[in-house]
Amino acid sequence: MATIPIGADRTIATRRAARRGLRALRQAPLIPLVILAVLVSVAILAPVLAPHGRLDPVKPTQERCLAKYGTPDCPYVDNVPPFWSRGSRLETPLGTDFLGRDVLSRLMYGARISLIVALTGALFAGAIGTVLGVLAGYMGRWWDEIIMRITDAWLTLPSLVFAILLSSVRGPGLWNVVLILALVFWSRYSRAVRGEVLSIRERDFVKLAEINGIGKLTIMWRHLIPNVMNTVMVLFSLQVGVAVIIEASLSFLGVGVPPPEPSWGLMMAQERESLMEGRWWLEIFPGICITLLVLSANMLGDWLRVRLDPQLRNR
């Protein structure tokens, strides 16, 4: 009879887990992950990576001023074209905007604003929605009735119109946009979480905890919330993309992040006229950034949904 050395069980389990992790990683959507990693790194390192400030115009040389305005002294040179056009400058590879500010630097800082707003907005919405969903699902009765009727009513509101309405009440501002996103999106979490809790609360471990006299708050905190986190994570990753779009739309409409801070939506709004003048890149670059971020977040969310759902995972 073969002897099994002490600790071998744990080694086997660890190896299995590592193999599973590796397999999952191999199936992970690499391109979205890379894009997200790049965007997050750029957002975090914007003050280091950006060649110029986000708010101040690039200091022009006397020659530049002379060439553009016929005077040796000017505070900035506006609308410098990007690197592939004649008249471009190496120090501003994507050109400058109508105020002589470096477009590349503003895009980098814009990533910071978009991510901060989208992540924190979706996070707060998730926190509110999860708590309310768990309460409704577990406590039942009038808790369920009240919370779910409010949720249903909330879900009928068109999100962008509702966000604009809230924005006009609260006024523009970065943290106001975060608050608005939280207020707009919590209901999606609470609806999904409540459904999940209705099933979990009937399981043996919850019943056993109840029989042992454990308090309702503890059950919710220790048994229910950890078990709905998969759903919350999937929803969160999907909501981030939507939050980016809402933030960009609010800023585009002038009720989001106030100028001169560089938000991608605002950058697009400010350069609408440039499209008519043939300076399409000023409109396209922030648009590309928004598309990449939203697509990546959505693809990652989709992958997470498949990974965390046992039925879909084993298909």
Binding site: L55, D56, P75, E261
Partner: peptide
């Protein structure tokens, strides 16, 4: 006239008076 306002805001910022625009 938001572009014009941002130009003035940039001038003010250049001497140290910093703010944001309420549209």
């Amino acid at each position: 006239y938001f572009d014009m306002a941002e130009r003035i805001l940039t001038d003010l910022r250049a001497v140290g008076m910093r703010s944001k625009m309420q549209m």
